[in-house]
Simulated scan of single mutants.
Amino acid sequence: MTETLISLISIFIGIIGAISAGFIFKKYSFGIVGNTISGVFGSVFLIKSFGRLGFNPQSIVQNGTFNGLLFSINCIVSFLGGVFVLIIIKKISQKMNKKGTN
């Protein structure tokens, strides 16, 4: 697997995380398009932020070998990134709408 493919898989898993969180927790949903966008940004943000701990795509395929444990950690962080950013964006949106009505 190349680093680019691992990055694309991570983004796709972040999208799945945001869409599934929107499906399970309906009050946090922005629809399929909004959930997809938040999943992309959440996945990229968390992998870029915490990837320096050793589970970024470059570390997964270091020296031409594939590290499955690091890849699974990468997938979990991507999924959680999509979920967390969806919830954070919804809370920010609710606060902004609340201030606009007063």
Rank of each mutant, 00 (worst) to 15 (best):
T101A: 11
V33N: 05
T4Y: 11
F84N: 11
K91F: 02
I89L: 09
L8A: 10
T36R: 05
S78W: 02
F84T: 15
M96P: 01
K99A: 05
L46W: 03
I6D: 08
S7E: 10
P57I: 04
K95P: 05
V85Y: 14
Q58P: 00
G64N: 09
F71G: 03
G31W: 11
G17L: 04
F79S: 06
N35T: 03
L53I: 04
L5H: 10
A18W: 02
N97Q: 14
Q58G: 02
K48V: 01
S49G: 04
G42A: 09
R52G: 15
I87R: 06
F12R: 09
K26E: 12
G34T: 06
C75P: 06
V77D: 03
N102D: 14
V85M: 07
N67A: 13
S59P: 08
Q58E: 14
L70C: 05
G51R: 11
Q94G: 06
S78N: 03
G54Q: 12
S72G: 06
K90W: 06
S38T: 14
V83L: 10
S43K: 03
S93K: 13
I15R: 00
K99S: 09
N67P: 12
S78I: 02
I37K: 00
F79I: 01
G68W: 08
G81V: 06
S93H: 15
K98Y: 15
V77E: 10
F55C: 08
M1P: 10
I19C: 01
G22R: 08
K98H: 14
M96I: 12
V40M: 07
M96E: 08
L5Q: 14
F66S: 00
S93P: 05
T36C: 09
L70F: 11
I73D: 06
L53H: 03
V83N: 10
S59Q: 13
V61M: 02
Y28V: 05
I87Q: 05
